[in-house]
Design a protein around this nucleic acid. Structure first.
Length: 445
RNA sequence: CGGCUAGUAGCUCAGUUGGUUAGAGCGCCUGACUGUGACUCAGGAGGUCGCGGGUUCGAGUCCCGUCUAGCCGCCCA
């Protein structure tokens, strides 16, 4: 019989238990933060009609779609992100949903791009989105910053910077520099976005390479760049940008919005040191219209943004015919888990059980079953050793390998006196106690 | 798609100018230990050397092809 070689598609992974345990803990913490801000859960299908998913993502993204014909010859695709499906839901259910509509959604998305394990980039990965649909209020944008900050705190990240910008600044810059062509402006923005990676000189070189960009225009863009990176408090930097873009309607509006979002976020308790107004932030997705966010871990910047999003006031209208303002932010859970693992900020875990109840021999097995059952009733996660007969040494090795902190040993001696021996695997000690005392001894290690 | 690097035990790797039966550490299993893991000692299992072809008396080693993985570029977050 021909053996089938076990293997995975490039960019896809198995999540083994020791990866899943910290991962589900993190998902739970993130979900708790979302609910604390009043968001309700939503889920949507992984596969949808291709035209819906690809609606406004732009031609670059289209190449990265997993797209195929289903058995009924329908043109379908795996979702690329979660926001487009939200826009579809809002349009489809209309007034059945309250406004503002606040929902969170956690699930896998797929992109057929070059994977990079080192940077936590895969072809299948999870996003955790929160979005607010139906309000133009910049309180909503600020709330995204507050949620970002709260999520970072909840997962134990101390050193991070949320950089945010407003797309309107680029429209202002376009007006100020007199760049007529939108596609040329897109090229300019692409270069600006690379600033962190290729430095100012690299950007300047790229701009020089743009044939349609004249010298005066290049100088204007570079001046903008220098103001954007000017080292000063956020409010001062915004003020300088506002001065620079004065006279352009979009530029003035963008700077005013930037400033309002910043102030709102401050009042919501987001510490200044975690927020940076950074006018070089572009973000790739085509549908963003206003505020955009990116979050980088100061100690692991090579992972890129672990939480990002922005305002997309035109997306819902694509499905409903009537524009509705919306803003949201999304955690890249896989990057975050990989990064935290690298920074040793993840508590590892290999077992769900707090205690392993060993089985001793035929005559005392009943007693072990009873112990396991009583521990579970007391709310303790208790695993019963299921392979019998087995030497005690083997069972202890099993507990050690799974890093189960406690082991209960109960043979005929203990059974006779209604007791059990509780071993603390880490402290390497053990003590004998009445069955009734067991749960309490495990609960407070 | 282009460039670079690498594929030898479950993992990390060694393997001389080509030369017997391909090794080490860790891990795993068994025993010393018929009520105790992490220490010690003894033993054991596990390899078509990525795959195919070529050169040679002889290839893990040299040559060609191919596949896979990783990195860089491109692209993207």
């Amino acid at each position: 019989m021909a053996r089938i070689e076990p293997r995975l598609l490039k960019g896809f992974r198995d999540y083994l238990p020791e990866v899943m345990i910290p991962r589900v803990k993190m998902l739970r913490k993130i979900g708790e933060v979302f609910e604390r801000f009043g968001f309700e859960p939503l889920d949507t299908p992984a596969i949808e009609y291709a035209d819906i998913l690809m609606g406004k993502l732009g031609p670059e993204a289209e190449k990265l779609f997993y797209r195929f014909k289903d058995n009924g010859d329908r043109d379908v695709a795996l979702r690329y992100e979660l926001t487009v499906s939200l826009a579809r839901v809002v349009a489809q259910y209309g007034t059945d949903l309250p406004r503002p509509f606040k929902r969170y959604q956690m699930g896998p998305v797929w992109r057929a791009e070059a994977p990079s394990v080192e940077r936590g980039r895969y072809r299948e990965f999870w996003q955790c989105d929160v979005d607010i649909v139906g309000t133009q209020s910049l309180l909503a944008d600020a709330e995204c910053l507050a949620i970002d900050n709260a999520v970072m705190q909840a997962v134990g990240v101390k050193n991070f910077v949320i950089r945010f910008n407003n797309r309107k600044l680029f429209r202002g810059l376009q007006q100020k520099a007199g760049i007529a062509s939108d596609s040329l402006m897109a090229d300019v923005m692409r270069s600006v976005d690379k600033l962190d990676k290729i430095e100012r000189d690299g950007v300047e070189k790229e701009l020089t390479g743009l044939a349609d960009l004249n010298e005066a225009q290049r100088a204007t863009v570079l001046e903008f760049l220098d103001l954007a990176k000017f080292q000063s408090p956020n409010s001062e930097r915004i003020a300088r940008l506002a001065q620079f873009l004065a006279g352009t309607t979009d530029g003035e509006k963008g700077c005013a919005e930037l400033s309002e979002v910043l102030q709102n976020a401050q009042r919501m308790g987001v510490p200044d040191q975690h927020v940076s107004a950074d006018a070089t932030i572009v973000r790739g997705l085509d549908y963003y219209t206003g505020t955009v966010f990116e979050t980088t871990l100061t100690d692991a910047p090579h992972f890129g943004s672990v939480m990002s999003g922005g305002r997309y006031d035109g997306l819902v209208g694509l499905f409903s015919g009537k524009d509705e303002p919306a803003v949201g932010i999304s955690v890249g859970i896989d990057r975050l888990v990989t990064a935290l693992g690298e920074l040793k900020l993840l508590k590892s875990g290999k077992a769900s059980a707090q205690v392993l109840v060993t089985v001793f021999d035929e005559s005392s097995t009943q007693y072990s079953l009873r112990i396991a059952s009583e521990l579970r009733s007391a709310g303790i996660s208790a695993e019963l050793y299921l392979d019998t007969p087995a030497k005690l040494g083997k069972q202890l090795k099993y507990a050690e390998r799974k890093e189960i902190p406690f082991v209960v040993v109960a043979g005929p001696d203990e059974a006779a006196s209604g007791e059990a021996t509780l071993k603390n695997m880490l402290a390497k000690n053990q003590s004998r106690m009445k069955l009734e005392a067991l749960a309490a001894a495990i609960a407070k290690p």
